[in-house]
């Protein structure tokens, strides 16, 4: 599986990572190596096999609907890179 530069750029854009042209080429090669490595999986017959996404076998893990104000609220706001009147401040979205 050989990726094209175009594909790498698209992936990087989805992942929100800015790449230079050199990096695109570097990652293109490295990601291709990884994809090549995993391509062996095709050899395993998985017909009729259901995927597993969790191994614990747990289900219906639910919490009661009780609310409380967090003791960490102020500290979280204090750790915002920028804030204003309790809001998080960022560059304009519009």
């Amino acid at each position: 599986m050989i990726l094209t530069s175009e594909q790498v750029r698209k992936i990087a854009a989805l992942a929100r990572i800015k790449l230079t042209d050199d990096e695109v080429e570097k990652f293109r090669k490295e990601l291709s190596v990884v994809l090549d490595y995993v391509s062996e999986l095709e050899k395993v017959n998985t017909d009729g096999v259901e995927e597993i996404s969790q191994v614990t076998g747990l289900e219906n893990v639910l919490r009661e609907d009780t609310a409380r104000l967090s003791e960490f609220r102020d500290a979280i706001i204090a750790s915002f890179p920028e804030s204003k009147d309790g809001f998080l401040k960022i560059k304009s979205i519009l």
Partner: peptide, 16 residues
């Protein structure tokens, strides 16, 4: 378990 309060007016009051 942060409160779900649509009428909250203080910004970032109900966060954890």
């Amino acid at each position: 378990d942060s409160p779900n309060n649509p009428d909250e007016t203080v910004p970032n009051m109900n966060i954890c």
